[in-house]
C-alpha cells in the first residue's frame, strides 16, 4: 500500500488558513495531486488519497469543541435531538466543500463512503452530491438514491438532476417516485430526468403532468415530453418517438415543441 505524501495533511490544514493565498496554494497542491493520481495504474494510490481526504471531510470536531452536548439538554428531548443532529466538524464548511470536490475527481469507489456520509453535512452536501454524480460506481448510485430521503427542495432537485445521468431499474423507480413529490421543483426535475431515459412508458407520467400544475409546470412538462421523444429517437425507438411527437401536435403544447414535432415527423 503506498503511503500518502506527508505534505497532504499539512495542505488539508492549510485549506482553512485565514490567509487566502496560503489556502489557495494548498488547494492547488491537493488538486494537482488528486488529478495526477487518476491514471488506472495508480489504483492503490487513489484509495490511499481518498481515505485521507475522506477522513478529513468527515472528521468530527475535537473533544473540547462546540459540538459537545451541554448537560442542560437532559430532560429536553427536542433540544437533545437538535444537539445530536448538529454535527460538529473539525474543518470549516469551506474546507469540507473543497475536500468533497477533490474526492469527486478520483475514479474509485473508495471515495463513496465518505461522500455518502457528507450528504448528511448540510454545508457540504451539495458538493458531495456533485462528486457522487461524477463517480460512476453502483455504490455512488445507491448513495444518491438514498439522498432522496433528505429534506430541502433545492438539494433534492440537485439529487434528482444527478440521477438523471444514470440508468437502471433502481434509478427509474426513484425518479418515478420523485415525480410525485409535493415540491414542484423536485417534481419538475424528475420529469426532466425521466425524459433522459429511453423508456416510452415514461410518457404517461410526463403527459399527466402536462395537464396539471401551474402554467410554468405544464410548459416544462411539454418540454420534457419533447425531450423524451428525442431520447427515444436517439436510442433507435423511432416508433415510440413518433407516437409522442404526434401526441404533442394535438396537445396544448407551445409552438416550439409543436415545431420540433413537425420537424421530426416530416
Amino acid at each position: 500500500m503506498p503511503t500518502t505524501n506527508p505534505e497532504v495533511t499539512q495542505w488539508i490544514d492549510q485549506l482553512g488558513d485565514p490567509d487566502q493565498v496560503v489556502a489557495y496554494f494548498a488547494y492547488q497542491c491537493l488538486l494537482e495531486l488528486t488529478l495526477r493520481t487518476g491514471p488506472p495504474t495508480q489504483a492503490e494510490a487513489q484509495v490511499c488519497l481518498a481515505t485521507v481526504l475522506g477522513e478529513a471531510l468527515t472528521a468530527p470536531a475535537r473533544a473540547s469543541g462546540a459540538g459537545a452536548q451541554p448537560a442542560s439538554f437532559a430532560g429536553n428531548p427536542f433540544l437533545a435531538a437538535v444537539a445530536s443532529q448538529t454535527a460538529s466538524y473539525r474543518y470549516a464548511p469551506r474546507v469540507r466543500v473543497q475536500l468533497a470536490r477533490l474526492l469527486g475527481l478520483l475514479p474509485c469507489d473508495s471515495a463513496v463512503p465518505f461522500l455518502k456520509q457528507a450528504l448528511m453535512d448540510l454545508e457540504a452536501r451539495d458538493m458531495a452530491r456533485c462528486s457522487l454524480e461524477s463517480n460512476a460506481s453502483e455504490s455512488a448510485t445507491e448513495a444518491l438514491i438514498g439522498a432522496l430521503a433528505a429534506v430541502g427542495a433545492t438539494f433534492l432537485t440537485g439529487v434528482v438532476n444527478s440521477l438523471a445521468n444514470r440508468s437502471g431499474p433502481s434509478i427509474v423507480q426513484a425518479l418515478r417516485k420523485a415525480a410525485q413529490e409535493p415540491q414542484p421543483e423536485v417534481r419538475d426535475a424528475a420529469l426532466m430526468a425521466l425524459a433522459a431515459i429511453p423508456d416510452s412508458s415514461h410518457d404517461s407520467i410526463i403527459e399527466q403532468a402536462a395537464h396539471t400544475g401551474s402554467a410554468a409546470e405544464r410548459r416544462l412538462a411539454h418540454v420534457a415530453r419533447a425531450r423524451l421523444a428525442e431520447t427515444l429517437r436517439a436510442s433507435g425507438d423511432k416508433l415510440g418517438a413518433a407516437h409522442i411527437y404526434r401526441a404533442i401536435l394535438t396537445s396544448d403544447a407551445e409552438e416550439p415543441q409543436k415545431r420540433a414535432a413537425r420537424l421530426a415527423l416530416a
Binding site: L35, T37, G38, P39, P40, G104, L105, L106, P107, D126, R129, C130, S131, E133, S134, A136, A153, T154, F155, T157, G158, V159, N161, S162, A164, N165, E185, A189, M192
Partner: peptide
C-alpha cells in the same frame, strides 16, 4: 480511451438546482 480519471473531467456537475 482507457482513462476514467480523464473522463470525469469531460463533465461538470451543476450546483443545485441548475440542470
Amino acid at each position: 480511451v482507457g482513462d476514467a480519471g480523464a473522463n470525469i473531467l469531460k463533465d461538470k456537475p451543476f450546483r443545485a438546482p441548475w440542470r
